[in-house]
């Protein structure tokens, strides 16, 4: 099952990816310095561009690894009842999630036109922070697809060591179920990227909300709204797409009021409240209310992301 081609590809991905990650760290620190020191600010755009370029090349390496997985690994039913299958793994799972989020954020930081200098500086600082966090907490190259690899190794171990056909069949159906219902599912290809793109736009909206309250300028309010809009559309559709999948994938399991789902809905509710408050922004007290709802919505984004790793539940990896 686990062949040399796959193992070599995994090792190559790790070997080529580590220097890329180190460069990402160096560039992120440089970007933070450029964005902080006014004298060096003129270099921050170039530093941000280099960082995004580097991350994009890292992502291409990951895509190549995933492609290799799909071509080199074949899952064969030991009982011969099911056709053989191949893994089509999306490039935003496990440690790749935060890497992908940082990459999307980087692209959004770059593509903006004629933004206020202070706003752009804060954005580049946040991007630098994301780059540093990616290196220390979500390096996708240190052990590429660690959980997938562990599942695969366990399965190969059972095939090699257990003489009982029943045990082999059980192990096969476990990994087959994960392949069909998780790795290869259309849901995994659509839902996570929609949410990560939404989260990235919410970062830009959040920075707008900060300046909106600090400087009390309509331009910042418009900027925040301009980025909250696509984020809210993607978040809503992404969440709606998740429901039919959840019904099928978690049938018979208790998932109602799961912590991650609760917090995600809280985030959606806060952004809905933000968009409603905006309708009457010129009424007394509504400017501050709108900005605060924007802050709370973004706090919801951060908590939603962290919940996956901290609070155990059906939609989490914690515990």
């Amino acid at each position: 099952m686990i062949n040399n081609e796959y193992l070599l590809a995994r090792e190559f991905t790790s070997r080529i990816g580590q220097p890329i990650m180190l460069l990402i760290l160096v560039l992120s620190i440089s970007l933070a310095i450029c964005a902080t020191l006014p004298r060096l600010r003129k270099y921050s755009q170039a530093a941000a561009f280099s960082l995004v370029l580097l991350m994009a090349s890292g992502w291409l390496v990951l895509i190549a690894f995933h492609y290799k997985i799909s071509t080199s690994l074949v899952l064969v039913d030991p009982t011969g009842q099911l056709p053989s299958g191949r893994f089509m793994i999306p490039v935003w799972i496990e440690n790749e999630k935060f890497f992908f989020w940082t990459l999307v954020l980087g692209v959004l930081v770059l593509i903006g036109k004629r933004r206020p200098v202070a706003y752009q500086s804060v954005l580049t600082m946040i991007l630098a922070g994301f780059g540093i966090l990616t290196f220390f907490t979500s390096n996708p190259f240190s052990a590429p697809l660690a959980q997938f690899h562990a599942d695969l190794t366990n399965y190969a171990g059972v095939l090699a060591s257990s003489p009982a056909p029943m045990a082999k069949a059980q192990a096969f159906y476990a990994i087959w179920g994960k392949m069909v219902g998780y790795y290869n599912s259309a849901y995994m290809w659509i839902h996570p990227p929609m949410l990560f793109i939404a989260y990235s736009t919410f970062v830009l909206a959040f920075v707008g909300n900060i300046f909106m309250l600090k400087d009390r300028k309509q331009d910042y309010e418009r900027l925040a709204y301009a980025w909250a809009k696509p984020g809210f559309i993607l978040l809503t559709i992404g969440l709606l797409i998740g429901y039919p999948w959840a019904v099928a994938a978690w049938a018979g399991e208790p998932w109602w009021y799961d912590p991650k789902i609760n917090i995600t809905l809280m985030m959606w509710l806060l952004y809905s409240a933000y968009l409603h408050a905006r309708l009457y922004i010129h009424r007394r007290g509504m400017w501050v209310t709108t900005a605060i709802l924007g802050y709370l919505g973004f706090l919801g984004v951060v908590i939603t992301y962290l919940t996956t790793y901290v609070i155990p539940g059906i939609h989490s990896v914690a515990g």
């Binding site: 609760n262 809905l265 509710l269 806060l270 919940t307 609070i311």
Partner: peptide, 14 residues
């Protein structure tokens, strides 16, 4: 916002 607060309570309790 009130429903959001209840969801936060639910997650903390979980």
């Amino acid at each position: 916002v009130a429903i959001g607060v209840i969801f936060v309570y639910g997650s903390t309790y979980s």
